[in-house]
Design a protein around this nucleic acid. Structure first.
Lengths: 171, 171
DNA sequence: AATAGCATGTAATCAGTTACATGATTTA
DNA sequence: TAAATCATGTAACTGATTACATGCTATT
């Protein structure tokens, strides 16, 4: 059910079409929190409209339909966001690979950890620059929140990879 | 396909039954990297055996079957771990909720962020203690790697929540 | 006039969750 | 001897990905 709330959340910031939302997932959410393809988004938008949680507010060229969240949608979104999630599940293939590095030859693991350390530092710097820029532009909070947590996570990943390297060397 | 490699990775550390593996997901992996229920694990173990990537090495009471990774399994696991993942997707409902806090009233958001800041600090301390203990016991690396990254992530989350609070106040 | 990007949809398949189902062994 | 835990499995359903399908509009 997370998809439905991700869509409501994005619509709560600004009205958008399915196409817009697909790009928002791609740019802001997919690397940190959630993802959906257009084939999942369009039907779900129609369901949200049928349930009265969102509504078409504008029709544009090429059949474009802009959706906005309704009052009922905001209530439902709030309820979900404030509802504490017990036993959370995270799916992160990249993290899984990092953990499983420990099952490889020390040489393989060392090589990958070095690459990881370098790559995550670069990502960190890239995001920091993007945040400075976005902040000037007064970008919507969801994007800024995501970018800031993303940047901090990449720095943490960088530091963890360096820790793991040291750990391998000391054995 | 991640499930298959998660299983191979756990088997690469030590032979285990489906039941053992379900507990490992629950304890070590589900909060950071991947999850699977027993209903997914048992059939996949049989598929791994059919594909020659794992094999039953022991039969115990109550129909218990202990699986071990094969040489072919290790090769396949290594191939996957070293294979760089382009366009990664993360599914993390908790992070999604944190991002969407920004769509709520400032008072709602503030309250949740304070709870988040407190909760993640507690989790951090809990994990740090567990790591110290596990390290003495010479626990398998996958567990230690996971716990160490988990601890660092919780601390980062704590710091981010405090940043987000400040950010709300300054507007 | 061609190309890239905008824009929406459905169908088939695969992955993951929940519910159903059974029974053995250990511990209190 | 009752309860908790160990142990495995299948079936039905829901969620997510990939492939198929179509057409418009703006830019070069």
């Amino acid at each position: 059910m997370s998809l439905r709330y991700a869509l409501l959340g994005l619509l709560a910031e600004a009205p958008a079409s399915g196409y817009d939302l697909a790009r928002k997932f791609e740019r802001n959410l997919r690397r940190y929190a959630w993802h959906a393809q257009h084939s999942q988004i369009y039907p779900e938008l129609n369901r949200l409209a049928a349930d009265g949680l969102a509504a078409v507010v504008e029709e544009g060229p090429r059949g474009r339909r802009t959706f906005a969240i309704t009052d009922a949608g905001r209530d439902e979104l709030r309820r979900w966001v404030l509802d504490p999630d017990d036993d959370p599940v995270v799916r992160n293939e990249h993290t899984l690979k990092l953990f499983l590095l420990s099952t490889l030859d020390v040489e393989d693991a060392r090589k990958m950890l070095r690459q990881q350390a370098e790559g995550s530092l670069q990502e960190y710097e890239r995001l920091r620059a993007a945040i400075t820029e976005a902040d000037r532009g007064g970008r919507p909070p969801v994007e800024l929140f995501a970018a800031e947590l993303g940047a901090r996570y990449f720095l943490t990943l960088h530091e963890w990879a360096r820790w793991a390297l040291q750990r391998l060397d000391s054995e």
